[in-house]
Design a protein around this nucleic acid. Structure first.
Length: 447
RNA sequence: GGCCCCAUCGUCUAGUGGUUAGGACAUCAGGUUCUCAUCCUGAAAACCGGGGUUCGACUCCCCGUGGGGUCACCA
């Protein structure tokens, strides 16, 4: 086989769609697997709808995911090339100029270029689906350029894939019905046909093609929610492709190793955000402590970051506890908006009755428990104020008086919340001074 | 509607003629030091239907049914 060349050919008319990202990924994987080249080509022949902003968005998205093309081209810069091929087609009589009324601007006359369609039956070998046959009769003499200087998609694609020596066209299933047209152009130009592989579509929950109306579809949206590129890559790869074994976690390197284009499925796959979240959590756990801190900090509410008790040391201690409760960094925003993270940084206030375990017992009992706890904890040095040490110090007393009756008020005094991490973790994270201050506050409340 | 593609738990999937149809996510139940989360264990959950072929079909063939894609002077 000659050197493998694949390509991703997005049109910059929108933000990088997850489907485009997956097509790019499969092209990237196939190229790398075969020591080939992965090309990028901006398909901006529709100048009215293409923008520089979207182009940047798409390109940035791809490099963020780690699948940046080896080379990049823009169709808008290759006009001369298409013109040459168009002339060749015209000269050989395989295409012709046709004066007709514009469909876009009714009333005005334009001269489009149409391909003379022999109306033959066309078939091609799809690497994923096998032989696909079309009767091209119904296609008629379709338009391949608005004018000699203004090529349309099908012409540009065929010319570029040929000029760039693309060997494998790996693209979405929605292009299957475009393929016969492109083959017709290839035949008219007498240029060879690349290998085709049409990958299944990413579907929404209702099993239709995933589009904006179904919610977040662009890579950038997920990126700004704090999803990790590794998890998006991993998830997208497993949507429509699977290795032989039960392995689920794959780095890009692993994917190149394991990837086999023949194993890509034929049926579409529903995009399941829950599974994506699961992947994201797995990669979140594998992040370094400082990366975790940084991610958390960007989503913490101002109420917390601007509070007096907020500092980076506290954040550092608290990070593992937060990571345990989120699957995406943006969950931090949800949690902090709900006040679930306040107590790590801000001293809580609450009604004294809340300190009662299951609403039983008396405030008097609670007071004496808290006093005893305070004494025990004060006996510990700041260095000994670890989760383990605190637990061993308190455990005996809790066992003796009843775990709930002791632990609930202790935890509540530290968090002011019905739900929170356990009191030992809380105390060690808050450190000795803040812990005793909060206990003192609770003791006062109960007196 | 024409043409084309597809079809295993709710979802992603393993399976290539003989399996208790396996795994993961989600769900539910139980357990782990008070609550929450984590973690552990377990449970429920699928071969679209009908014909063939075959000693034997989830696996092969045909026909239905269902779903999807596409029918531009967009890409």
């Amino acid at each position: 086989m000659s050197d493998v060349v694949t390509r991703i050919a997005p049109s910059p008319t929108g933000s990088l769609h997850v489907g485009t990202a997956r097509s790019a990924l499969f092209n990237y994987l196939f190229a790398r697997k075969n020591n080939g080249t992965f090309l990028g080509r901006i398909e901006d022949t529709d100048r009215a709808r293409s923008t520089k902003e979207f182009e940047d968005d798409v390109l940035e998205g791809l490099s963020w995911l780690g699948i940046k093309p080896d080379e990049l081209n823009r169709q808008s810069e290759r006009g001369e090339l298409y013109k040459e091929y168009l002339k060749q087609l015209l000269d050989s009589g395989k295409a012709y100029l046709s004066k007709e009324e514009s469909k876009i601007n009714p009333g005005t006359q334009i001269e489009v270029v149409r391909l003379k369609n022999p109306g033959s039956s066309v078939s091609f070998e799809d690497m994923i689906r096998g032989t696909i046959t079309f009767d091209t009769g119904e296609l008629g003499d379709f338009v391949i350029a608005r004018s000699i200087d203004d090529p349309l998609y099908h012409l540009a694609v065929v010319v570029d894939d040929h000029e760039m020596a693309v060997t494998h066209v790996i693209r979405g299933e929605d292009h299957i019905s475009n393929t016969p047209r492109q083959i017709l152009i290839q035949k008219a130009l007498d240029i060879p046909q690349p290998y085709y592989a049409h990958i299944p579509l990413i579907l929404a929950k209702d099993r239709s093609k995933l589009s904006k109306r179904h919610g977040a579809t662009s890579v950038n949206e997920y990126r700004s929610l704090g999803y990790l590129p590794e998890s998006i890559i991993n998830y997208l790869a497993l949507l429509g492709w699977n290795p032989d074994d039960n392995q689920e976690l794959f780095s890009l390197k692993d994917l190149i190793q394991a990837f086999d284009i023949e194993e890509i499925h034929k049926g579409g796959a529903v995009f399941d955000i829950e599974k994506l979240k699961w992947f994201n959590r797995e990669y979140l756990k594998r992040l370094s402590q400082s990366e975790q801190e940084e991610g958390i900090e960007t989503f913490l509410s101002p109420k917390i970051t601007e509070s007096e008790g907020y500092d980076i040391v506290r954040l550092r201690r608290v990070t593992p506890l937060i990571i345990e409760r989120i699957s995406v960094f943006s969950d931090v925003k949800i949690l902090s908006d709900e006040g679930e993270l306040d107590y790590y940084f801000i001293r809580p206030t609450y009604k004294p009755e809340s300190l009662l375990w299951k609403n039983e017992g008396t405030l008097n009992d609670v007071c004496s428990h808290l006093k005893h706890l305070s004494t025990i904890l004060n006996a510990l040095s700041e260095k000994e104020f670890t989760q383990q040490d605190i637990k061993s110090a308190v455990w005996g007393y809790a066992e003796e008086k009843g775990r709930g009756t002791v632990l609930w008020p202790m935890r509540y005094a530290l968090s002011g919340r019905d739900k929170s991490p356990d009191p030992f973790a809380l105390a060690s994270v808050l450190e000795k001074n803040e812990t005793s201050a909060r206990l003192e506050y609770a003791i006062k409340l109960t007196q």
